[in-house]
């Protein structure tokens, strides 16, 4: 068995695909590529594919990860070429790396995400108001919001999960830069801090038409930052 980690970008027009649709796209592309996929055991075998982090509909990304397991040996660049040919417009493989089988699952180690968010403005914006809103955010020790999920609303403190939050006013829009907690434990959605700040400083931006772009996914351990391509699990020891 061979385990490969694929680093790819999800670009236009595929930002409209959901996580489940992405799983379908990769499963079918891997099959079309004729790769010797490894399957789960049981009555309903499915290919052993695992994503790093679910990407919401409407979000593009430069830095996504996917692990696949194959039954036979293959070179990383060979898989890169075979798979790229079978991917629809909007999915670009950046790097493929063979990783040790016992490497911890992407899901369990990725804990940081960086985003670039562009929110169209519905009226003229004040740079000062925006600065005050951001200052307000950093001054607080906790920023509790209500998150609506399928199961109901729950309270969530944004503050400990936001590590960087910058914004600047551009003509007709506000451009945001952020690093937030991502993954299994605390997962901050990029529009959550944006919404809090813009409401605080009464900036009217259109969140519905926001462009959200994930610029990076990585692993932070004891103050050190690792790319999922390099992290095999024993770094923190």
């Amino acid at each position: 068995m061979l385990r490969l980690r694929i680093n790819y970008a999800k670009e236009e027009p595929l930002r409209f695909l959901s996580h489940l649709e992405m799983l379908n796209v990769f499963t079918r592309a891997l099959r079309r590529a004729g790769l010797p996929l490894a399957y789960s055991q049981g009555f309903n075998p499915h290919p052993l594919i695992a994503f790093g982090s679910a990407l919401a509909v409407r979000v593009t990304s430069d830095d996504e990860y996917l692990d696949v397991r194959l039954e036979k040996e293959i070179r990383a660049h060979e898989l890169h070429n075979l798979l790229q040919k079978q991917l629809p417009e909007g999915l670009k493989i950046k790097k493929v790396k063979i990783i040790p089988l016992q490497t911890p699952a992407l899901m369990s180690v990725i804990n940081r995400a960086s985003y670039l968010v562009t929110t169209p403005a519905t009226e003229k914006l004040s740079e000062n108001a925006l600065r005050d809103g951001l200052q307000n955010f950093w001054d607080k020790s906790s920023v509790v919001i209500e998150r609506v999920t399928k199961k109901g609303t729950k309270k969530l403190d944004l503050r400990p999960g936001v590590f960087l939050l910058e914004a600047r006013v551009a003509p007709k829009e506000v451009i945001w830069n952020m690093v937030v907690s991502s993954g299994n434990k605390v997962n901050i959605r990029p529009l959550e801090p944006v919404k809090w700040v813009t409401e605080k400083c009464c900036l009217s931006v259109n969140l519905e038409l926001a462009k959200i772009h994930r610029t990076g996914l990585y692993i932070e351990r004891k103050g050190r930052k690792f790319s999922p391509l390099d992290y095999v699990g024993n770094e923190a020891l």
Binding site: L14, F16, V25, P88
Partner: peptide
């Protein structure tokens, strides 16, 4: 359509037309 309409509708992949 991609900028202003698809973000507002459900199941937007119905309208992409770029399927395999």
């Amino acid at each position: 359509i991609h900028k202003e309409i698809l973000p507002r509708v459900s199941k937007p992949s119905r309208y992409l037309g770029t399927e395999w």
